[in-house]
Design a protein around this nucleic acid. Structure first.
Lengths: 347, 347
DNA sequence: TTGTATGCGTTATCAT
DNA sequence: ATGATAACGCATACAA
């Protein structure tokens, strides 16, 4: 408690006039085996010296680090944080610690962080893939480190995927938009990148539109380029047909970008339909409210850990896919007949 | 590369027909000292075996973990995440790794995490205090672990504080509100808790109001109790005086809660003034836009690390306080004369 | 119930 | 330029 030098097990042992072993047992799982008086002596000595077992040494010996790694593609995305929160809780309940690394969607950082996590001998990895599939990831998987893919799929890495049931989500969105009378849709998404073959999602959207006789357009957009997105949306809204139009946003970031653009375009939410995947704090507050498909972030996070810890790193159920919840708001409620009075004014 | 068993330095040494020492040197700072042919052999062997130095063992021997800990009170607060992002970057540049722990504002979790960080022998700690001041924190500080307090102050812990210049922020807000013609203010904040004596901030607000002849009310509110806040705000708005009223929100969470309530109350932003500390993604999108005082989150994060690494854990400049940036939007622009037409419609 | 001895993978010290 | 060997702090098999 007064030492600047970190107390070691041997010092505690000396102070309690016993052996390293007993002290080790005291701080391990075998406290029971020690006689009450000895326990008391050790407790006294340890607290006096401000002793904490050195996790490094502990991990070195046993080979078990009790560390789970998590790679997050974009820590500033509230969705990622929400999932991470679930992961964290699940880890805590298992007595595991979580080492979170943010990759900022940068493959280079992803590599670095992966090296770090490897160096710390993590016992499991939850990955929200950033860039292309890496040899590093495959190596880790090959070395037998349990691994779970979050949200973003990855070919040629043999790991379970946990996240939203995308086909279902798309279907729910299309059902809702159709029921509300929208007929011409634009699906806006960030570019899938070589990592995640979202052909599934896209295919589902296109088949879904076809089956419902909806016009289903698609636009992939890097959100760094706002101007481009602006153009595309403006073009979509002023398109030739007069049928009711709606936008479907692939995630929270897209929803934000699109909402901003609609705002500057002075579009009326509802008249122009808008629905996004991911529920955000502010969706109820903008104009008449923005409709969303909320992901069960907490469940997804917990599921990821459970899946990680499952024997053989395999869940019992086929896939770790979760259903979203539709939160319908004004942005998908078309004005009665006439184009309504005014709402969502300029500035 | 094909081993399930993690390769060790000794295996690499054998494969490269050399000694542990040389391999250690290769992966350490002394690669230069090795002859090119030997370097090549080691590189070959290591990559073939998929070898990564075990950071545990490394930390055990040298005593240096290259680990920085960060305690975040609420990971779901975008402000915290933004600062964390800055911390992370600064760490990366220093070759340090960041171990982030979320305490969910729970002192118990704070203790646990602190124990963990201690166990991993972190070489520095950035703390966004959750609850009351802990013995653990003091111990850590006493043991000579560099420490920086983020945003929230803490008595009886001798560590530098990095964060917003609160007096300045309050002053800027009051100046702006006064210039815009608001005369009756309500400052809404989360309860300060025993940890952080925000008397400074409060005092500054009250003195500031007095100096400007403004009516300055204050309300501390735990954001879990929305109903209570609702009542208080309703009462404030329907208060007897007819002088223009404005709300000042102490942070992003408060801004969100207050905005929601104003929304349900059908209040017209601008007519009712609103300004918050912390810039949020959506502030420009709600009604006429919500005015904010943006914190330089990135700079704060980086500053925290710099302060941590500074010799003696002390900055040169007196305090690590940063100035905010005023972002004026419609929520602090009063309608010309008549109470204006309509904006921010119900739903 | 308690203690002794050994090894975990690495770096540092001292040789050569 | 390279190598042998002793710590680092702890857990565990084994002995008492």
């Amino acid at each position: 408690m007064t030492q600047s030098h970190r107390a070691t097990i041997i010092e505690v042992a000396r102070a309690a006039s016993t052996s390293k072993t007993s002290v080790s047992r005291y701080f391990g799982e075998e406290r029971e085996r020690l006689s009450p008086p000895l326990q008391a002596r050790i407790a006294e000595a340890a607290s006096h010296l401000g002793y904490h077992p050195n996790q490094m040494a502990r991990g070195l010996k046993g080979g078990s680090s009790r560390l789970i790694g998590m790679l997050v593609a974009d820590i500033r995305n509230p969705f990622s944080v929400a999932v991470m929160h679930g992961v964290e809780q699940a880890c805590r309940e298992q007595g595991l610690s979580l080492l979170v690394c943010n990759t900022d969607n940068d493959p280079a950082q992803e590599r670095e962080h992966l090296a770090l996590l490897t160096a710390y001998r993590i016992e499991g990895l939850v990955v929200n893939v950033a860039g292309s599939p890496h040899r590093e990831l495959q190596n880790l998987a090959a070395q037998g480190v349990p691994m779970v893919l979050l949200d973003r799929e990855l070919v040629d890495v043999d790991a379970e995927l946990v996240g939203l049931d995308n086909p279902l989500a798309i279907d729910m969105a299309l059902d809702h938009l159709q029921a509300q009378g929208y007929r011409e849709l634009l699906y806006v998404s960030e570019p899938p990148g070589q990592a995640s073959p979202r052909t599934t999602r896209l295919g589902c959207y296109q088949r879904g539109c076809e089956a419902r006789s909806l016009t289903g357009k698609v636009h992939y957009q890097d959100l760094a380029d706002t101007a481009m997105l602006h153009q595309v949306i403006a073009a979509f809204l002023t398109g030739s047909t007069r049928s009711p139009k709606a936008l479907l946003c692939a995630n929270g970031n897209v929803t934000l970008a699109v909402t901003r653009i609609l705002h500057t375009l002075g579009a009326r939410l509802g008249e122009t339909g808008l629905i996004g995947i991911d529920e955000l704090d502010w969706c109820a507050l903008v104009g008449p409210g923005i409709s969303t498909l909320a992901q069960p972030t907490d469940a997804i996070g917990r599921d990821a850990v459970q899946c990680l810890l499952a024997p053989g790193n395999r869940r019992v159920a086929p896939r770790g896919l979760h259903a979203p919840t539709l939160i319908a708001r004004g942005s998908t409620r078309r004005p009665a007949q006439a184009p309504a009075q005014e709402e969502e004014p300029e500035q």
